[in-house]
Design a protein around this nucleic acid. Structure first.
Lengths: 247, 247
DNA sequence: CCGCCATTTTGATTTGCGTCAAAACAGTAA
DNA sequence: TTACTGTTTTGACGCAAATCAAAATGGCGG
């Protein structure tokens, strides 16, 4: 009986917060070793998900928040008439599901765009533990707040930027997030379709495609289908917030 | 010396959570009498603000969150080139400043549109108290989550609705919030300018004005400058999510 | 009360992006 | 390989909302 037990243990270790390479990016950031152990006890379910799977659906009851270990997903709000608005793209270290705490029901669908692994964090356990560990409490609040701050940025984008600016902001944001996770900031795969990018940016897929082609023609990026290379990151940055700026 | 002391006490009582008419709408919702007392101890600063005042400015360090007792305000994100995006309108019972918890710095300006009174809630005290009072902790999380959910709704609006729909959603949202506070759901004053409405909705002020005039011509509302009366609330509701709907 | 300034309305015109359409391309399964 | 499907690109055209402009209205201070 020793062998299977050890396998289980190795498996558990492999996916524990304390040994997870993301723990400085994820919810347990800044916790001590013993506090990490408490986190490990709280998170006992990890789910593997395939492209196309839903982490949760709009309307479903909130069971847990989900920390992304690997992979890539989108969250999208659906309008009754079928219109879809992508509210965000999420990658490892991100925490999703926080929109559901208010009502107990998920507001958006979370759809897997690239095979992923998520850690289920029961809300009740998180609340309990964050009453005991002030730095966990603080960090959870920071994460929710950062989501609000991100949303304000998206509102600025959707409310007052032209197509080129929106796309530039989008690429710079992806770049910065990949960099923060140790990946290249200038070369990456777009896991989503042009239509999903468009939905996120409040544009039609044709406009996204045209604008990308335009960036390519200007030598700002090199795009080949889903593979993207940023060639002139500073020019992209300049592009944002110029607008024609007649002030 | 008795008289001035009593005046102070009356003044304190008047503004305590335990006697505040908003306590079922505001942060202390659902707390017991003794828990309300603890809230009272935490909130000892109330500020009176005049139209045009800032509750906080973008870039300023986070000192406290602010619960609105009376009045009306907007929060707006500024782009370096001067573009302003109104991220929300806030009224009594609302909690503002949560965007700053993540970085410790406010991301947006909170500007008073109608003389207001706010309660300062030091974040540290709130964290401390919510570790002791689980229902306060839960409710604080719900409030942050509702802000995220609201933001998703605004994204849907900005990303995929036409002008008429945006304005209809805006009016219905105001209507519903006034109703929740015991005011008329069909007749109210718009405290903001057409330009501020436009900024919030991702439209220009002329479009807001034109669309309001159109609603008036259709008999949906009666507008007279800032005074608005909703005449056919169901028609407004129908207008949202029709879009031409060829599905 | 008047005059001033900010706000709002309305009209004429422009334009950026959406819509429609079709071809090119990539990925998958047989 | 070939056929099939979903995605992307590119072009031509139309439209909703922006822009430009000017008049009307409202509110405030003197």
């Amino acid at each position: 009986m020793a062998t299977p037990l050890r396998i289980v243990e190795v498996d558990k270790l492999k996916t524990a917060c304390s040994t997870c390479s993301l723990h400085e990016l994820c919810l347990p950031a800044g916790l001590s070793a013993s506090e990490l152990k408490s986190m490990d006890r709280m998170i006992d379910i990890r789910r593997s998900l395939k492209r196309g799977d839903h982490v949760f659906r709009a309307g479903a009851a909130l069971h847990a928040l989900y920390a992304i270990r690997t992979g890539f997903m989108k969250s999208s709000v659906l309008h009754e008439d079928g219109r879809e608005q992508v509210a965000g793209f999420h990658m490892m270290g991100d925490l999703i599901g926080m929109d559901a705490i208010g009502t107990g029901q998920h507001l958006c669908d979370a759809v897997v765009l690239e095979d992923s692994e998520v850690c289920e964090i029961p809300l009740k356990s998180l609340e309990l533990l964050s009453r005991e560990i002030p730095s966990l409490q603080q960090h959870f609040h920071r994460i929710m707040s950062r989501e609000i701050a991100r949303d304000y940025g998206v509102m600025l984008l959707l409310g007052s930027m032209r197509a080129e600016e929106r796309l530039a902001v989008f690429l710079l944001n992806l770049s910065q997030r990949f960099a923060a996770r140790g990946y290249s900031s200038t070369e990456f795969h777009l896991r989503m379709t042009r239509e999903e990018i468009g939905s996120y940016l409040g544009l039609k897929l044709e406009t996204v495609s045209r604008t990308l082609s335009q960036f390519q023609a200007q030598g700002l990026v090199a795009v080949q289908n889903k593979h993207l290379r940023i060639l002139k990151i500073d020019s992209l940055r300049e592009l944002v917030g110029q607008h024609g700026c007649r002030i």
